[in-house]
Amino acid sequence: MSGRVAAVSTHRADVAVIGGSGFYSFLEDSEEVSVRTPYGDPSAQVAIGTCAGRRVAFLPRHGAGHAFPPHAINYRANPWALRSVGVRQVLGPCAVGGLLPSVATGDLVVPDQLVDRTWRRAGSYVESGAVHLPFADPYCPRLRTRLIAEVDVADGGTMVVVEGPRFSTREESQHYAAQGWSLVNMTGAPEAALAREMRLCYATLALVTDMDAGVEEGEGVGQEEIFALFARNVERLKDLLTRVIGDLPDPAGCTCDTWAGGLALSYDLP
């Protein structure tokens, strides 16, 4: 798609945090910037401020007050908007359900693999031509290395992303677990692939808020318990992200960007 729409040039950041369920603010003394994109409006205005000595952008994935359910998020607008204000590295914390005994409620996990089981989302900026994204390793290796350096963060695991907004049936959860997938989520795809198409370094930090329906006996997972556990951990996430932002690796030369070198992209980069 052509027709680049420029962001306000005086508002710049080089790192972004995309907040998940219950994570609707991050920066103090920030300024909100309206960014128009060729794909429509992002989930909210982009808040830009300073964190750990860096210029940081924050965007709530679900919008202010959780306006957008997972299947209705404008996934293409969000990475485009962030890149348009200068962002090159993105941290995407999210809530997940646990599928295997290797994870427990309250764990923080940095997955290294993703399985996309969504089906009605615009999953690419490519609308014409031959542009095939290398995606064998869906998360930035440099950002993952920095995140797992934190003492209370677990390294690795596969996150399966389902369409939502409903939770999984017991049989679905048991099927995912049987594949060896350890986490289940509703927003990690197509966000990760779109960030890569925008040539952004991207990694997610998953907070296990529950054990999914097929893992435990009982009534199954409910929204109230998930939101309550995430709320209890928001300050923990903010503290960890602040430490990470203050010590991020240089994105220059990362394969998240260089994959497109020499290719004629059929979509505009802001």
Rank of each mutant, 00 (worst) to 15 (best):
L183Q: 03
W259T: 09
V109T: 04
R61A: 03
L108N: 04
M1L: 13
A231V: 06
V160M: 06
C201G: 09
T187W: 02
C94I: 10
G222N: 15
V221E: 04
V103H: 01
L147Y: 04
C51T: 07
G222V: 14
G3S: 07
T242Y: 07
E31F: 08
A206S: 15
V8R: 13
S102Y: 02
E235C: 04
A136K: 10
V221D: 02
H71F: 08
T187V: 12
L82K: 01
T10F: 12
R121K: 13
P60N: 08
P38D: 12
T145H: 13
P134A: 06
I73W: 00
E216Y: 07
S173N: 05
G40S: 09
I48C: 03
Y24W: 11
E150C: 12
E191F: 01
D268A: 15
D247A: 15
A136P: 05
H175R: 10
R55N: 12
R83E: 07
G261M: 08
E150V: 04
M186P: 00
A52H: 09
R117M: 13
S168C: 13
A77G: 08
V151I: 12
V131I: 11
R232D: 14
M198G: 02
P141M: 03
G246I: 06
Q113F: 09
D29L: 09
E224D: 15
V90W: 00
G222E: 14
L207G: 01
D250K: 07
A6T: 11
A189W: 02
L269P: 06
D155I: 06
